[in-house]
Design a protein around this nucleic acid. Sequence first.
DNA 1: AAGTTTTGTTAGATTAGTCTAACTTTAATA
DNA 2: TATTAAAGTTAGACTAATCTAACAAAACTT
Lengths: 227, 227
Amino acid sequence: MLSITEENYLKALFRLTCEEVGKTDAGTNEIAAQLDVKPATASDMLRKLKEKKLIEYEKYGKSMLTRRGKKMAMEIVRKHRLWETFLYEKLGFTWDEVHEVAEQLEHIQSQKLIERLNTFLGNPKYDPHGDLIPQADGEFKLIEKKTLNDIAEGETCLVVGVSDNSAEFLQYVDGLSIAIHRPLKVVSRKPFDAILEIEVKGKRSAISARLADHIFVSREVKKAAKM
Amino acid sequence: MLSITEENYLKALFRLTCEEVGKTDAGTNEIAAQLDVKPATASDMLRKLKEKKLIEYEKYGKSMLTRRGKKMAMEIVRKHRLWETFLYEKLGFTWDEVHEVAEQLEHIQSQKLIERLNTFLGNPKYDPHGDLIPQADGEFKLIEKKTLNDIAEGETCLVVGVSDNSAEFLQYVDGLSIAIHRPLKVVSRKPFDAILEIEVKGKRSAISARLADHIFVSREVKKAAKM
DNA sequence: AAGTTTTGTTAGATTAGTCTAACTTTAATA
DNA sequence: TATTAAAGTTAGACTAATCTAACAAAACTT
Ligand SMILES: [Mn+2]
Ligand SMILES: [Mn+2]
Ligand SMILES: [Mn+2]
Ligand SMILES: [Mn+2]
């Protein structure tokens, strides 16, 4: 069984490669930064994970997950996102509060627990941030997401996620009434100033193009769900 | 903040003293046995916990929790038992399955999580083994429990707990239809052979006095709960 | 191509938690 | 009381995970 630390390295590598479009491997410094450790520390661990055949890695080279490593990484991400969903749906945590606690819960070892939790939550497809939850069979397809900057003036789209999960960011967009699965209209654009005027739940706000780039949307507005 | 290991030492000491009638302190070997480590290891940690003012301890002496140590130990026990209740009530785990997973979950650090979980479970008083759940304010009174051996022939009592939480024991008593909050009748006793004949849910079985000693009961059968 | 910057590794030290083996103190017993 | 047994501690070693400092390789830049 893997240590919590080893699990965190696999997860970091998963996020840096499998969840990043057009990226198949990651460098040592990058991995170290993701985990908030020094490159020397990561270098050591990468050698160890290669021994365990969880990653492919050669001295001075880039790292990538093996099939086995990817499977294990995905299980951790699955647990993380199922717990986030639990905290949000069942315990009334807010968008920005779930991640920190899920970082701990994702390391609980019990196959049965995670299967039961999944059933209890009704086999959810997405977590509260709109991120896809990997399925038990290892099914996981990365959807390339459009950002708010891809939406034309006057169009209405649906918020499906964000690329910044910091509490500050989440609280800020919350203040603009932006939330997952909520329609959002791009009222106007000021290209010269790189500012968008948006409308959510009848409330108008101005946001920068930089911020808009962190908001993932789908073009079609979903029909209202049946009762 | 305490490490998981430190938390486990506090919990072990709590179980050996505060939850054991007529016992106010515990020896180093005893504590080591409870945690499945060598006495040398425990000895080291006890010195460390004394430094942190979590226990009272002098070289070659017995250990006991300080007020602060007891408060922290109780919080861990509270978390353990709330998680056991969650697994049992919400995820359909069986009596004997909950403990192992709760040993992990009890170390998750989040005040908010445990408060919300408590509310979600309806502020339960007892865990699935019939053990009292310490309350958030530190309220916890040890109830001296009667065992099945205290019940006279022909009397019916209510099962309220067990003193052996091993999976083997729990599965065995499960097979006799014995469960928490279920009425149990002592049909007859064979004092010479130290065997009791009991009846639960219309099913008769014979059990040894040794086993009966591990089954806690209350004398009065509770009235059927209202719908 | 040479020099410089960035990236990555190695060596050596540190901390927490564990062990074994040897030793010391306290308790029990003859 | 003297001896033995049980309980507890100390010393020294080990592992995992981290760091800093020094070094090496690879990648840019001029
Ligand atoms: Mn998260
Ligand atoms: Mn998420
Ligand atoms: Mn338990
Ligand atoms: Mn219990």
